[in-house]
Design a protein around this nucleic acid. Structure first.
Length: 508
RNA sequence: GGUCCGUUCGUCUAGUCGGUUAGGACGCCAGGUUUUCAUCCUGGAAAUCAGGGGUUCGAGUCCCCUACGGACUGCCA
């Protein structure tokens, strides 16, 4: 390294929304950088103009922000290596490609995509796999087979060309991976990858190596899908004369589909009933909407905590981690090697844990706007009391209404199963007596009403469960909720009596 | 097909120096608490460590083979 400073990058391609696998890659990069007092930068790899998707870059930036992954340099945040969008760096790449050609590590190729497609097809007909490599490169139209004057003529006359790497024969290439150890590949297996396209832009392989070098990246932490091309990148560092400034590599295991096998893909989420994206995404061309964790009600810290443990573990039994704790505990050494299926049930559990950790005040901030929409006006101390009472029943903020509506409005219907189980033949008769008791309960506190009702039950040798459950049914509308006398006190005597009357009338 | 990577309860995983009743968590089941639901507490079922060989007094842990899974195999990233 030029310096010992830890510098990592997250380098997505803006071809659509980032899915959770990408978010996890970004997260691990961030944790690693912060752990070592280093920098993380965001670079947008948009060298393929044909795959540009409107809004994808903004989506990526917003997602990272929501997650609390605060990179300190890159698109959106100016830094010493700007610009950070590869399309804006177009002028920097060509000289390196030319340098490779000059040193005989690369060559010009003039084969058209159509010509190569034809060759590929004929191989396929033979059930063989075509690759442009050492064994057949002399059969094609390139600067290795054409004379120098022919090449100059083609170049000068503006013929389209690409530049390909000239992979050496039978050379062992070593990739030292921080997660997998030493991976060795024989160069004869590699093909002469295109480094520089006919549209004047580099391919990923060249751009990524050049930029990582220029941006002084110390560690390349990326998905396992890049492992097969890592030897090519190693070769490029060598051929560009940067062997000693080559970053360390770490290839992360993949995130798999929860059902069956295979890499988690963009289409899996809504098919299986859970989001695969951090934020909701509307496809600009099809207008199709894909759900996101934020919109599904997940708290960013819970989401991040869940993601962090998918492929990494601290080696202790701690499971709840703040971002700072993650930074403190993270190490690439403890990242696993095998892919993980992710479990929507556990994600829900994490959200429950984080929700319980929030104070009633914090929750009120999130809940109040929804109540306003429902035209419910209430004072803050009442809201805080209710939140405190129903919080343990909530996994998500949006579940508040389902768990607490009866504090604000009378039940409009009665849960069928609860009616069947809890409403007896003589319930109406008993409830009339309870109604009278409540009418005369003074002061109208939970404690006093409880005493009145319990005395009534004991004196008449009634069953507490039967009475309480019937009363709960007509007050709440279902078999749920916190202490019934607390509820009664909060909604008030008038409302309580009215609900009892209505319950008797409707249920009979 | 070729190359590379992987394989411990249903799922996430601990077990990184060979000696463990193979531990934890989610989920599931049962019991307890409660006026119900949820929370909470206690307990339980759940991995012959993919299979087979080897090395060793002893292997989830080291070696080899096989199987299975995955990634890659584009002028995509």
């Amino acid at each position: 390294m030029n310096s010992h400073k830890i510098r990592v990058r997250f380098a997505p391609s803006p071809t659509g929304p980032l899915h959770i696998g990408g978010v996890r890659t970004a997260l691990y990069n961030y944790l690693f950088a912060k752990k070592h007092g280093g920098d993380m930068l965001l670079r947008i790899e948009d060298t393929d103009q044909t795959r540009y998707v409107e809004g994808a870059e903004a989506y990526i930036i917003e997602s990272l922000k929501w997650c609390g992954i605060n990179y300190n340099e890159g698109v959106g945040i100016d830094g010493p290596h700007a610009p950070y969008r590869q399309s804006e760096r177009k002028p920097v790449y060509k000289q390196y490609a030319l340098d490779l050609i000059k040193n005989n590590f690369a060559y010009y190729a003039f084969d058209t995509p159509q010509e190569l497609e034809t060759v590929r097809k004929s191989y396929e007909a033979d059930k063989k796999n075509f690759q442009y490599d050492q064994k057949n490169r002399l059969q094609f139209k390139n600067s290795l087979t054409l004379s120098q004057s022919e090449v100059s003529f083609l170049l000068d006359s503006g013929s389209p060309y690409v530049m390909r790497i000239k992979i050496p024969e039978n050379e062992e290439i070593l990739v030292n991976d921080l997660i997998r150890g030493e991976v060795r590949v024989n160069s004869s297996q590699l093909d002469d990858k295109v480094l520089f396209k006919s549209d004047g832009l580099p391919t990923y392989h060249l751009a990524n190596v050049v930029d990582d070098y220029l941006m002084e990246i110390s560690h390349v932490i990326r998905g396992e899908e890049w492992l097969p091309s890592a030897p090519l990148h190693v070769l490029l560092y060598r051929y560009l004369g940067w062997e000693n400034d080559k970053p360390q590599f770490a290839h992360l295991p993949l995130l798999l589909k929860p059902d069956g096998n295979g890499k988690l893909s963009k289409r899996d989420g809504d098919r299986l009933g859970f989001p695969v994206f951090p934020l909701q995404w509307t496809d600009p061309s099809s207008k199709e909407i894909s759900s996101g964790y934020r919109d599904a009600g997940y708290l960013p810290d819970a989401f991040i905590n869940m993601l962090a443990l998918l492929g990494w573990n601290p080696g202790t039994e701690q499971e709840i981690f703040s971002m700072d704790e993650l930074i403190e505990s993270f190490s690439l050494e403890r990242v696993g090697k095998s892919g993980s299926k992710f479990d929507p049930e556990k994600a829900k559990w994490f959200n429950h844990q984080y929700l319980q950790q929030m104070t009633d005040e914090e929750l009120a901030e999130l809940i109040a706007p929804d109540l306003t929409l429902k035209l419910i006006h209430l004072d803050r101390s009442l809201l805080l009391t209710v939140i405190g009472m129903v919080k343990p029943r909530m996994n998500f903020v949006h579940e508040f209404w389902d768990q607490a509506s009866y504090f604000f409005v009378a039940p409009s219907e009665y849960d069928a199963k609860a009616v069947k189980d809890r409403w007896k033949n003589d319930s109406a008769e008993t409830m009339k007596k309870v109604s009278t008791l409540i009418q005369h309960s003074e002061p109208f506190t939970a404690e006093n009403t409880k005493t009145q009702v319990m005395n009534f039950i004991v004196e008449n040798q009634l069953n507490t469960g039967v009475i309480m459950n019937a009363l709960r049914l007509i007050i709440v509308g279902a078999s749920k909720g916190p202490d019934l006398f607390e509820i009664i006190e909060l909604i008030g005597k008038t409302e309580t009596l009215s609900r009892i009357d209505k319950g008797i009338e409707v249920l009979g």
